[in-house]
């Protein structure tokens, strides 16, 4: 076994991964919070008013990063599910399932903020716009993965089945996007371009990118937090988990 695979197996072992995740997690959360606040200041205060949409466009600073995250989280989940199914690495199973609820949360935020943004711009809370519809299907895909994972008793089998579903979904996403676009051209009338290829000012673009960075870092913090729990559940009977459980009890009573 060469040094790389040795390192991989060592960090992939649940107790080591648990400790490592615990050390990195607070930094991710902290950095995400700081970057996010700076981006918010830039977006809400420093960025100038849009000449077409007025101040309503400021929803973009959360809507678009969350939309990016909803896809990124799905790719992250599917990539880990692939690794888990092919090489049967436990840590990847846990990582994939940790990403699902976070991705669903970002998808939900995208839908709700998109609909809130649509009200003043389109005059309606919901239009069957191609991107909104795709995002809705994406939310269903997430909910399917989470539901399947929750419905199966055995944790490893649950992760493998839900991971398989995530892989089917990754094939489905571009097909849905393509079909919804075609469908939208068939039913002309509800297509409203929210953002054309218009030039966006630099003072608007940096808070957007910074917010995207912040949500990515935050995502990894949350993935690590959920991974730690997944590892505890997976290794329920082992000694290292027992030690953590008893320590936790002492802290609670101290």
């Amino acid at each position: 076994m060469n040094a790389l695979t040795l390192w991989f197996h060592k960090t992939g072992s649940p107790p080591t991964a648990y400790r490592l995740a615990g050390r990195i997690m607070p930094w991710c959360y902290g950095l995400g919070l700081v970057l996010g606040l700076v981006a918010l200041y830039g977006g809400l205060v420093l960025a100038p008013r849009d000449y077409q949409q007025g101040d309503a466009y400021r929803i973009i600073f959360i809507h678009v990063p969350c939309a990016w995250m909803s896809l990124f989280a799905y790719f992250f989940m599917a990539a880990n599910a692939f690794i888990a199914l092919v090489w049967r690495i436990k840590l990847s199973e846990v990582l994939a399932m940790a990403a699902a609820p976070i991705g669903a949360a970002f998808t939900f935020i995208t839908l709700v903020t998109g609909s809130i943004w649509g009200k003043p711009m389109w005059g309606t809370w919901w239009t069957w716009d191609a991107r909104l519809t795709s995002e809705l299907v994406l939310l269903f895909l997430y909910l399917g993965v989470i539901g399947l994972h929750a419905a199966i008793e055995d944790r490893r089998q649950a992760a493998r089945a839900a991971g398989f579903l995530a892989l089917i979904g990754i094939v489905n996403i571009p097909i849905v996007h393509f079909s919804v676009n075609w469908w939208n051209t068939l039913h002309q009338g509800s297509t409203v371009r929210l953002m054309g290829p218009s030039k966006i000012d630099a003072s608007m673009i940096w808070p957007l990118l910074l917010m995207a960075l912040a949500t990515h870092v935050w995502f990894f913090g949350s993935v690590l937090a959920r991974t730690r729990i997944g590892l505890l559940e997976l290794d329920g009977g082992k000694d290292w988990v027992r030690a953590i459980a008893l320590d936790d009890d002492k802290e609670a009573h101290a």
């Binding site: 101040d55 309503a56 400021r58 929803i59 903020t113 003043p120």
Partner: peptide
Amino acid sequence: MGGYGAYVWSAY
């Protein structure tokens, strides 16, 4: 928010 306060702040 230039009249859009309710929308912007509820989204946030």
